[in-house]
Design a protein around this nucleic acid. Structure first.
Lengths: 215, 215
DNA sequence: TCTTGGGTGTTACTTGCGGTAACCGAAGTG
DNA sequence: CACTTCGGTTACCGCAAGTAACACCCAAGA
Protein backbone atom coordinates (compact mmCIF):
# COMPACT_ATOMS: atom_id res chain seq x y z
CA UNK A 1 0.00 0.00 0.00
CA UNK A 2 1.53 3.28 -1.06
CA UNK A 3 0.94 6.10 1.27
CA UNK A 4 -1.65 8.18 -0.45
CA UNK A 5 0.29 11.30 -1.09
CA UNK A 6 -2.50 13.77 -1.18
CA UNK A 7 -1.37 17.19 -2.34
CA UNK A 8 -3.10 19.33 0.20
CA UNK A 9 -5.52 17.93 2.73
CA UNK A 10 -8.05 16.84 0.09
CA UNK A 11 -10.15 15.13 2.68
CA UNK A 12 -12.52 13.20 0.45
CA UNK A 13 -15.93 13.99 1.87
CA UNK A 14 -16.77 10.39 2.70
CA UNK A 15 -19.73 10.66 0.39
CA UNK A 16 -17.29 10.43 -2.44
CA UNK A 17 -15.71 7.46 -0.73
CA UNK A 18 -19.07 5.83 -0.35
CA UNK A 19 -19.71 6.28 -4.02
CA UNK A 20 -16.37 4.71 -4.90
CA UNK A 21 -17.17 1.73 -2.73
CA UNK A 22 -20.52 1.34 -4.41
CA UNK A 23 -18.83 1.44 -7.80
CA UNK A 24 -16.52 -1.33 -6.71
CA UNK A 25 -19.39 -3.36 -5.31
CA UNK A 26 -21.16 -2.83 -8.56
CA UNK A 27 -18.30 -4.23 -10.52
CA UNK A 28 -18.15 -7.31 -8.31
CA UNK A 29 -21.87 -7.92 -8.49
CA UNK A 30 -21.71 -7.51 -12.22
CA UNK A 31 -19.09 -10.26 -12.23
CA UNK A 32 -20.18 -12.62 -9.44
CA UNK A 33 -23.91 -12.09 -9.31
CA UNK A 34 -25.91 -11.81 -6.12
CA UNK A 35 -23.65 -14.03 -4.03
CA UNK A 36 -20.79 -11.56 -4.20
CA UNK A 37 -19.00 -11.74 -0.86
CA UNK A 38 -18.05 -8.84 1.32
CA UNK A 39 -14.45 -9.94 1.10
CA UNK A 40 -14.55 -9.85 -2.66
CA UNK A 41 -16.11 -6.41 -2.71
CA UNK A 42 -13.60 -5.08 -0.23
CA UNK A 43 -10.75 -6.53 -2.27
CA UNK A 44 -12.12 -5.00 -5.45
CA UNK A 45 -12.27 -1.66 -3.71
CA UNK A 46 -8.66 -2.12 -2.61
CA UNK A 47 -9.47 -2.16 1.08
CA UNK A 48 -10.67 -4.57 3.74
CA UNK A 49 -13.98 -5.58 5.23
CA UNK A 50 -14.33 -3.42 8.32
CA UNK A 51 -14.40 -0.31 6.18
CA UNK A 52 -17.36 -1.58 4.27
CA UNK A 53 -19.10 -2.23 7.53
CA UNK A 54 -18.27 1.24 8.79
CA UNK A 55 -19.94 2.69 5.73
CA UNK A 56 -22.93 0.45 5.26
CA UNK A 57 -23.56 -1.21 8.60
CA UNK A 58 -24.07 -4.68 7.31
CA UNK A 59 -24.39 -6.57 4.09
CA UNK A 60 -28.02 -5.70 3.83
CA UNK A 61 -27.14 -2.03 4.03
CA UNK A 62 -24.67 -2.23 1.22
CA UNK A 63 -27.07 -4.25 -0.87
CA UNK A 64 -29.84 -1.81 -0.22
CA UNK A 65 -27.70 1.12 -1.25
CA UNK A 66 -26.60 -0.71 -4.35
CA UNK A 67 -30.10 -1.77 -5.23
CA UNK A 68 -31.39 1.74 -4.84
CA UNK A 69 -29.03 3.04 -7.50
CA UNK A 70 -30.08 0.50 -10.03
CA UNK A 71 -33.71 0.67 -9.13
CA UNK A 72 -33.73 4.42 -9.52
CA UNK A 73 -32.07 4.20 -12.89
CA UNK A 74 -34.46 1.56 -14.13
CA UNK A 75 -37.44 3.46 -12.81
CA UNK A 76 -36.37 6.57 -14.67
CA UNK A 77 -36.17 4.67 -17.91
CA UNK A 78 -39.53 3.07 -17.33
CA UNK A 79 -41.18 6.34 -16.44
CA UNK A 80 -39.95 7.83 -19.66
CA UNK A 81 -41.47 4.96 -21.58
CA UNK A 82 -44.79 4.94 -19.78
CA UNK A 83 -45.19 8.70 -20.02
CA UNK A 84 -44.39 8.96 -23.68
CA UNK A 85 -46.84 10.87 -25.88
CA UNK A 86 -48.49 7.95 -27.61
CA UNK A 87 -51.42 5.61 -27.58
CA UNK A 88 -51.82 3.40 -24.58
CA UNK A 89 -50.95 0.23 -26.38
CA UNK A 90 -47.77 1.76 -27.69
CA UNK A 91 -46.79 3.01 -24.27
CA UNK A 92 -47.38 -0.37 -22.73
CA UNK A 93 -45.24 -2.03 -25.34
CA UNK A 94 -42.50 0.54 -24.91
CA UNK A 95 -42.51 0.00 -21.16
CA UNK A 96 -42.32 -3.75 -21.46
CA UNK A 97 -39.54 -3.45 -23.97
CA UNK A 98 -37.58 -1.07 -21.79
CA UNK A 99 -37.73 -3.44 -18.87
CA UNK A 100 -36.76 -6.43 -20.95
CA UNK A 101 -33.92 -4.57 -22.58
CA UNK A 102 -32.59 -3.67 -19.15
CA UNK A 103 -32.58 -7.18 -17.79
CA UNK A 104 -31.18 -8.46 -21.05
CA UNK A 105 -28.32 -6.01 -20.93
CA UNK A 106 -27.13 -6.86 -17.43
CA UNK A 107 -28.56 -10.15 -16.21
CA UNK A 108 -26.25 -10.36 -13.22
CA UNK A 109 -27.40 -7.05 -11.91
CA UNK A 110 -30.93 -8.08 -12.58
CA UNK A 111 -30.51 -11.29 -10.61
CA UNK A 112 -29.00 -9.32 -7.81
CA UNK A 113 -31.92 -6.95 -7.68
CA UNK A 114 -34.47 -9.74 -7.72
CA UNK A 115 -32.86 -12.07 -5.23
CA UNK A 116 -30.98 -9.95 -2.75
CA UNK A 117 -29.39 -13.01 -1.18
CA UNK A 118 -31.68 -13.63 1.77
CA UNK A 119 -30.70 -11.54 4.77
CA UNK A 120 -30.63 -14.33 7.34
CA UNK A 121 -32.05 -12.02 9.92
CA UNK A 122 -32.89 -13.69 13.24
CA UNK A 123 -36.33 -12.15 12.91
CA UNK A 124 -37.18 -12.10 16.60
CA UNK A 125 -40.70 -13.41 16.98
CA UNK A 126 -40.63 -15.44 13.85
CA UNK A 127 -43.77 -14.31 12.10
CA UNK A 128 -42.19 -11.90 9.69
CA UNK A 129 -44.23 -13.31 6.92
CA UNK A 130 -44.46 -10.03 5.16
CA UNK A 131 -40.91 -9.36 4.08
CA UNK A 132 -40.45 -11.10 0.84
CA UNK A 133 -38.15 -10.87 -2.09
CA UNK A 134 -37.43 -7.78 -4.00
CA UNK A 135 -38.15 -4.25 -2.95
CA UNK A 136 -37.60 -3.43 -6.58
CA UNK A 137 -40.75 -5.22 -7.60
CA UNK A 138 -42.72 -3.46 -4.91
CA UNK A 139 -41.57 -0.08 -6.05
CA UNK A 140 -42.27 -0.88 -9.67
CA UNK A 141 -45.72 -2.12 -8.77
CA UNK A 142 -46.57 0.98 -6.78
CA UNK A 143 -45.28 3.31 -9.45
CA UNK A 144 -47.22 1.57 -12.14
CA UNK A 145 -50.31 1.62 -9.98
CA UNK A 146 -49.97 5.36 -9.66
CA UNK A 147 -49.68 5.79 -13.40
CA UNK A 148 -52.69 3.61 -14.04
CA UNK A 149 -54.73 5.39 -11.43
CA UNK A 150 -53.81 8.79 -12.83
CA UNK A 151 -54.32 8.08 -16.46
CA UNK A 152 -56.97 5.43 -16.83
CA UNK A 153 -60.61 5.86 -15.93
CA UNK A 154 -61.65 2.77 -14.03
CA UNK A 155 -64.83 3.84 -12.32
CA UNK A 156 -65.57 3.00 -8.67
CA UNK A 157 -62.96 1.17 -6.65
CA UNK A 158 -60.39 2.37 -9.09
CA UNK A 159 -57.65 2.89 -6.55
CA UNK A 160 -57.59 -0.68 -5.41
CA UNK A 161 -57.99 -1.93 -8.92
CA UNK A 162 -55.04 0.15 -10.02
CA UNK A 163 -52.85 -1.17 -7.25
CA UNK A 164 -53.71 -4.77 -7.97
CA UNK A 165 -53.09 -4.22 -11.64
CA UNK A 166 -49.83 -2.44 -11.00
CA UNK A 167 -48.42 -5.32 -9.03
CA UNK A 168 -50.01 -7.88 -11.29
CA UNK A 169 -48.58 -6.40 -14.45
CA UNK A 170 -45.16 -5.98 -12.90
CA UNK A 171 -45.33 -9.60 -11.80
CA UNK A 172 -46.24 -10.64 -15.31
CA UNK A 173 -43.33 -8.69 -16.72
CA UNK A 174 -40.99 -10.17 -14.18
CA UNK A 175 -42.16 -13.75 -14.56
CA UNK A 176 -42.18 -13.71 -18.31
CA UNK A 177 -38.89 -11.84 -18.41
CA UNK A 178 -37.20 -14.29 -16.09
CA UNK A 179 -38.32 -17.22 -18.17
CA UNK A 180 -37.49 -15.53 -21.45
CA UNK A 181 -34.03 -14.57 -20.26
CA UNK A 182 -33.14 -18.11 -19.38
CA UNK A 183 -34.65 -19.86 -22.38
CA UNK A 184 -34.68 -17.22 -25.05
CA UNK A 185 -37.54 -18.84 -26.92
CA UNK A 186 -38.16 -15.81 -29.11
CA UNK A 187 -37.07 -12.30 -29.84
CA UNK A 188 -37.70 -9.46 -27.46
CA UNK A 189 -40.13 -7.81 -29.82
CA UNK A 190 -42.18 -10.96 -30.12
CA UNK A 191 -42.32 -11.36 -26.38
CA UNK A 192 -43.48 -7.80 -26.02
CA UNK A 193 -46.23 -8.33 -28.56
CA UNK A 194 -47.44 -11.50 -26.87
CA UNK A 195 -47.59 -9.88 -23.47
CA UNK A 196 -49.35 -6.82 -24.76
CA UNK A 197 -51.85 -9.08 -26.47
CA UNK A 198 -52.44 -10.80 -23.17
CA UNK A 199 -53.09 -7.49 -21.47
CA UNK A 200 -55.36 -6.52 -24.32
CA UNK A 201 -57.77 -9.28 -23.50
CA UNK A 202 -56.98 -11.69 -26.27
CA UNK A 203 -57.31 -14.53 -23.81
CA UNK A 204 -60.91 -13.63 -23.09
CA UNK A 205 -61.65 -12.98 -26.73
CA UNK A 206 -60.32 -16.27 -28.07
CA UNK A 207 -62.74 -19.09 -28.63
CA UNK A 208 -62.43 -22.58 -27.28
CA UNK A 209 -60.41 -24.97 -29.33
CA UNK A 210 -62.25 -26.88 -32.01
CA UNK A 211 -63.37 -30.35 -31.01
CA UNK A 212 -64.03 -28.79 -27.70
CA UNK A 213 -63.66 -30.69 -24.47
CA UNK A 214 -66.84 -31.98 -23.01
CA UNK A 215 -65.95 -30.46 -19.72
CA UNK B 1 -30.56 -57.90 -5.74
CA UNK B 2 -33.12 -59.87 -3.83
CA UNK B 3 -36.53 -58.33 -3.67
CA UNK B 4 -37.03 -60.34 -0.56
CA UNK B 5 -38.99 -58.59 2.10
CA UNK B 6 -37.29 -59.38 5.33
CA UNK B 7 -40.38 -59.79 7.45
CA UNK B 8 -38.79 -60.15 10.81
CA UNK B 9 -36.24 -57.38 10.69
CA UNK B 10 -38.13 -54.10 10.79
CA UNK B 11 -35.44 -52.85 8.47
CA UNK B 12 -37.18 -49.79 7.15
CA UNK B 13 -36.54 -49.80 3.42
CA UNK B 14 -34.72 -46.51 3.46
CA UNK B 15 -37.43 -45.03 1.30
CA UNK B 16 -39.54 -44.93 4.39
CA UNK B 17 -36.63 -43.33 6.21
CA UNK B 18 -36.25 -40.77 3.48
CA UNK B 19 -39.88 -39.91 3.81
CA UNK B 20 -39.57 -39.46 7.54
CA UNK B 21 -36.65 -37.15 7.06
CA UNK B 22 -38.60 -35.09 4.58
CA UNK B 23 -41.45 -34.83 7.04
CA UNK B 24 -39.08 -33.53 9.65
CA UNK B 25 -37.55 -31.08 7.21
CA UNK B 26 -41.03 -29.98 6.35
CA UNK B 27 -41.81 -29.20 9.94
CA UNK B 28 -38.65 -27.16 10.32
CA UNK B 29 -39.23 -25.21 7.14
CA UNK B 30 -42.77 -24.55 8.24
CA UNK B 31 -41.35 -23.07 11.41
CA UNK B 32 -38.14 -21.38 10.29
CA UNK B 33 -38.82 -20.52 6.68
CA UNK B 34 -36.33 -20.94 3.89
CA UNK B 35 -33.23 -20.40 6.02
CA UNK B 36 -33.78 -23.57 7.99
CA UNK B 37 -30.36 -25.02 8.74
CA UNK B 38 -29.26 -28.57 8.15
CA UNK B 39 -28.45 -28.87 11.83
CA UNK B 40 -31.95 -27.83 12.77
CA UNK B 41 -33.51 -30.28 10.36
CA UNK B 42 -31.31 -33.09 11.58
CA UNK B 43 -32.16 -32.27 15.15
CA UNK B 44 -35.87 -32.22 14.37
CA UNK B 45 -35.51 -35.63 12.79
CA UNK B 46 -33.73 -36.83 15.91
CA UNK B 47 -30.47 -37.56 14.12
CA UNK B 48 -27.36 -35.73 12.96
CA UNK B 49 -26.18 -34.04 9.82
CA UNK B 50 -24.19 -36.71 8.00
CA UNK B 51 -27.27 -38.83 7.64
CA UNK B 52 -29.06 -36.08 5.84
CA UNK B 53 -26.12 -35.78 3.51
CA UNK B 54 -26.09 -39.51 2.92
CA UNK B 55 -29.70 -39.35 1.84
CA UNK B 56 -29.81 -36.12 -0.11
CA UNK B 57 -26.28 -35.35 -1.18
CA UNK B 58 -26.29 -31.71 -0.26
CA UNK B 59 -28.62 -29.02 0.91
CA UNK B 60 -29.81 -28.37 -2.59
CA UNK B 61 -30.76 -32.01 -2.91
CA UNK B 62 -32.85 -31.95 0.21
CA UNK B 63 -34.47 -28.70 -0.82
CA UNK B 64 -35.21 -30.04 -4.25
CA UNK B 65 -36.85 -33.14 -2.83
CA UNK B 66 -38.84 -31.03 -0.42
CA UNK B 67 -39.86 -28.57 -3.07
CA UNK B 68 -41.00 -31.33 -5.36
CA UNK B 69 -43.48 -32.59 -2.81
CA UNK B 70 -45.07 -29.22 -2.31
CA UNK B 71 -44.93 -28.33 -5.94
CA UNK B 72 -46.64 -31.56 -6.90
CA UNK B 73 -49.34 -31.01 -4.33
CA UNK B 74 -49.96 -27.45 -5.44
CA UNK B 75 -49.97 -28.45 -9.06
CA UNK B 76 -52.59 -31.09 -8.42
CA UNK B 77 -54.84 -28.58 -6.76
CA UNK B 78 -54.34 -26.09 -9.58
CA UNK B 79 -55.00 -28.67 -12.25
CA UNK B 80 -58.25 -29.56 -10.59
CA UNK B 81 -59.27 -25.91 -10.63
CA UNK B 82 -58.22 -25.22 -14.19
CA UNK B 83 -59.85 -28.36 -15.51
CA UNK B 84 -63.15 -27.86 -13.78
CA UNK B 85 -66.31 -28.08 -15.90
CA UNK B 86 -67.14 -24.41 -16.14
CA UNK B 87 -66.79 -21.30 -18.22
CA UNK B 88 -63.31 -20.02 -18.84
CA UNK B 89 -63.68 -16.99 -16.65
CA UNK B 90 -64.87 -19.12 -13.78
CA UNK B 91 -62.01 -21.55 -14.20
CA UNK B 92 -59.49 -18.73 -14.26
CA UNK B 93 -60.90 -17.29 -11.08
CA UNK B 94 -60.93 -20.68 -9.40
CA UNK B 95 -57.31 -21.24 -10.35
CA UNK B 96 -56.20 -17.87 -9.05
CA UNK B 97 -58.12 -18.44 -5.86
CA UNK B 98 -56.61 -21.87 -5.34
CA UNK B 99 -53.12 -20.50 -5.67
CA UNK B 100 -53.77 -17.60 -3.36
CA UNK B 101 -55.43 -19.83 -0.79
CA UNK B 102 -52.37 -22.05 -0.81
CA UNK B 103 -49.87 -19.29 -0.23
CA UNK B 104 -52.14 -17.75 2.35
CA UNK B 105 -52.40 -20.98 4.27
CA UNK B 106 -48.68 -21.63 4.60
CA UNK B 107 -46.64 -18.55 3.82
CA UNK B 108 -43.43 -20.02 5.15
CA UNK B 109 -43.64 -22.93 2.78
CA UNK B 110 -44.48 -20.55 0.03
CA UNK B 111 -41.43 -18.41 0.74
CA UNK B 112 -39.33 -21.50 0.78
CA UNK B 113 -40.58 -22.58 -2.60
CA UNK B 114 -40.05 -19.19 -4.14
CA UNK B 115 -36.64 -18.43 -2.73
CA UNK B 116 -34.85 -21.72 -2.26
CA UNK B 117 -32.03 -20.02 -0.38
CA UNK B 118 -29.53 -19.46 -3.20
CA UNK B 119 -27.36 -22.51 -3.64
CA UNK B 120 -24.01 -20.74 -3.36
CA UNK B 121 -22.60 -23.05 -5.98
CA UNK B 122 -19.15 -22.06 -7.22
CA UNK B 123 -20.56 -22.35 -10.71
CA UNK B 124 -17.27 -22.99 -12.43
CA UNK B 125 -16.93 -20.52 -15.26
CA UNK B 126 -19.08 -17.93 -13.64
CA UNK B 127 -21.51 -17.10 -16.41
CA UNK B 128 -24.43 -19.19 -15.31
CA UNK B 129 -26.83 -16.48 -16.16
CA UNK B 130 -29.64 -18.83 -16.92
CA UNK B 131 -30.35 -20.46 -13.61
CA UNK B 132 -32.72 -18.24 -11.77
CA UNK B 133 -35.02 -18.49 -8.86
CA UNK B 134 -37.83 -20.89 -8.44
CA UNK B 135 -38.30 -24.06 -10.42
CA UNK B 136 -41.83 -23.98 -9.09
CA UNK B 137 -42.68 -20.97 -11.18
CA UNK B 138 -41.21 -22.58 -14.25
CA UNK B 139 -43.24 -25.69 -13.80
CA UNK B 140 -46.40 -23.72 -13.18
CA UNK B 141 -45.75 -21.64 -16.26
CA UNK B 142 -45.17 -24.65 -18.47
CA UNK B 143 -48.23 -26.45 -17.17
CA UNK B 144 -50.42 -23.45 -17.69
CA UNK B 145 -49.01 -23.01 -21.18
CA UNK B 146 -49.99 -26.55 -21.98
CA UNK B 147 -53.52 -26.02 -20.75
CA UNK B 148 -53.88 -22.83 -22.72
CA UNK B 149 -52.49 -24.41 -25.85
CA UNK B 150 -54.80 -27.38 -25.54
CA UNK B 151 -57.98 -25.56 -24.76
CA UNK B 152 -57.86 -22.15 -26.36
CA UNK B 153 -57.86 -21.49 -30.06
CA UNK B 154 -55.21 -18.88 -30.70
CA UNK B 155 -54.60 -19.19 -34.40
CA UNK B 156 -51.09 -19.16 -35.91
CA UNK B 157 -48.12 -19.03 -33.61
CA UNK B 158 -50.29 -20.33 -30.86
CA UNK B 159 -47.65 -22.47 -29.23
CA UNK B 160 -45.32 -19.62 -28.52
CA UNK B 161 -48.16 -17.39 -27.54
CA UNK B 162 -49.39 -20.00 -25.08
CA UNK B 163 -45.98 -20.36 -23.52
CA UNK B 164 -45.53 -16.64 -23.09
CA UNK B 165 -48.96 -16.34 -21.63
CA UNK B 166 -48.45 -19.26 -19.32
CA UNK B 167 -45.35 -17.76 -17.79
CA UNK B 168 -46.80 -14.28 -17.89
CA UNK B 169 -49.97 -15.23 -16.08
CA UNK B 170 -48.07 -17.25 -13.51
CA UNK B 171 -45.82 -14.26 -12.97
CA UNK B 172 -48.82 -12.03 -12.52
CA UNK B 173 -50.28 -14.44 -10.00
CA UNK B 174 -47.01 -14.64 -8.16
CA UNK B 175 -46.30 -10.93 -8.14
CA UNK B 176 -49.76 -9.91 -7.10
CA UNK B 177 -49.92 -12.72 -4.56
CA UNK B 178 -46.62 -11.77 -3.01
CA UNK B 179 -47.69 -8.19 -2.62
CA UNK B 180 -51.14 -9.09 -1.38
CA UNK B 181 -49.78 -11.50 1.18
CA UNK B 182 -47.55 -8.88 2.71
CA UNK B 183 -49.97 -5.96 2.68
CA UNK B 184 -53.37 -7.57 2.72
CA UNK B 185 -54.99 -4.60 1.05
CA UNK B 186 -58.18 -6.46 0.28
CA UNK B 187 -59.91 -9.80 0.53
CA UNK B 188 -58.83 -12.75 -1.51
CA UNK B 189 -62.04 -12.72 -3.51
CA UNK B 190 -61.56 -9.08 -4.45
CA UNK B 191 -58.03 -9.71 -5.53
CA UNK B 192 -59.17 -12.59 -7.69
CA UNK B 193 -61.79 -10.44 -9.33
CA UNK B 194 -59.34 -7.65 -10.05
CA UNK B 195 -56.82 -9.96 -11.60
CA UNK B 196 -59.41 -11.72 -13.69
CA UNK B 197 -60.63 -8.34 -14.88
CA UNK B 198 -57.11 -7.50 -15.89
CA UNK B 199 -56.83 -10.70 -17.89
CA UNK B 200 -60.19 -9.97 -19.42
CA UNK B 201 -58.91 -6.88 -21.10
CA UNK B 202 -60.44 -4.23 -18.91
CA UNK B 203 -57.25 -2.26 -19.15
CA UNK B 204 -57.56 -1.99 -22.90
CA UNK B 205 -61.27 -1.33 -22.73
CA UNK B 206 -61.10 1.51 -20.22
CA UNK B 207 -61.05 5.03 -21.50
CA UNK B 208 -58.50 7.67 -20.66
CA UNK B 209 -59.12 9.66 -17.57
CA UNK B 210 -61.13 12.83 -18.00
CA UNK B 211 -59.03 15.92 -18.48
CA UNK B 212 -56.97 13.86 -20.86
CA UNK B 213 -53.25 13.48 -20.89
CA UNK B 214 -51.66 16.64 -22.11
CA UNK B 215 -48.39 14.89 -22.37
C1' DT C 1 -17.44 -70.43 15.61
C1' DC C 2 -15.29 -66.41 13.97
C1' DT C 3 -15.26 -63.17 10.53
C1' DT C 4 -16.76 -60.24 7.13
C1' DG C 5 -19.53 -56.59 5.34
C1' DG C 6 -23.16 -53.36 4.62
C1' DG C 7 -26.53 -50.92 7.03
C1' DT C 8 -27.25 -47.59 11.01
C1' DG C 9 -25.43 -43.81 13.61
C1' DT C 10 -21.92 -40.80 15.91
C1' DT C 11 -18.09 -37.17 17.07
C1' DA C 12 -15.02 -34.03 15.49
C1' DC C 13 -13.10 -31.64 12.03
C1' DT C 14 -12.37 -28.16 7.88
C1' DT C 15 -13.68 -24.27 5.17
C1' DG C 16 -15.77 -20.09 4.19
C1' DC C 17 -18.54 -16.10 5.23
C1' DG C 18 -20.75 -12.37 7.93
C1' DG C 19 -19.50 -9.49 11.50
C1' DT C 20 -16.54 -7.33 15.25
C1' DA C 21 -12.74 -5.93 18.55
C1' DA C 22 -8.66 -4.08 19.06
C1' DC C 23 -4.87 -2.14 17.48
C1' DC C 24 -1.75 1.29 13.96
C1' DG C 25 -0.04 5.28 11.99
C1' DA C 26 -0.29 9.55 9.87
C1' DA C 27 -2.37 13.88 9.89
C1' DG C 28 -4.07 18.46 12.45
C1' DT C 29 -4.22 21.28 16.51
C1' DG C 30 -3.48 23.25 21.34
C1' DC D 1 5.15 17.79 22.58
C1' DA D 2 0.91 15.19 23.84
C1' DC D 3 -3.66 14.11 22.12
C1' DT D 4 -7.23 13.14 19.49
C1' DT D 5 -9.13 11.45 15.26
C1' DC D 6 -9.65 9.52 11.30
C1' DG D 7 -8.72 5.76 7.41
C1' DG D 8 -6.92 1.55 7.77
C1' DT D 9 -5.35 -3.10 9.27
C1' DT D 10 -4.86 -7.86 11.55
C1' DA D 11 -6.87 -11.21 14.01
C1' DC D 12 -10.49 -13.05 15.87
C1' DC D 13 -15.71 -15.02 16.95
C1' DG D 14 -19.88 -17.59 15.65
C1' DC D 15 -22.24 -20.21 12.62
C1' DA D 16 -23.57 -23.07 8.82
C1' DA D 17 -22.27 -26.35 4.98
C1' DG D 18 -20.00 -30.29 4.15
C1' DT D 19 -16.65 -34.34 5.28
C1' DA D 20 -13.66 -37.93 7.42
C1' DA D 21 -13.19 -41.36 10.40
C1' DC D 22 -14.74 -44.10 13.64
C1' DA D 23 -18.45 -47.16 16.25
C1' DC D 24 -22.41 -50.31 16.46
C1' DC D 25 -25.61 -53.90 14.89
C1' DC D 26 -27.06 -57.74 12.53
C1' DA D 27 -27.15 -60.90 8.66
C1' DA D 28 -24.85 -64.26 6.41
C1' DG D 29 -20.39 -67.60 4.73
C1' DA D 30 -16.28 -70.21 5.30
Amino acid sequence: METTQQAAGQQRPADQRRRELLEAADRVVLRDGPQASMNAIAAEAGITKPILYRHFGDKGGLYRALAKRHTDALLDALRAAVDAPAERRERVEATLDTYLAAIEARPQVYRFLMHPAEDTQPSEAGFDVGRHSAPLLRRLGEELAKVIYDRVDLGPGSEQLARVWGHGIVGMMHGAGDWWLSERPCSRAELVRCLADLLWGRLAAASDRAGGPGF
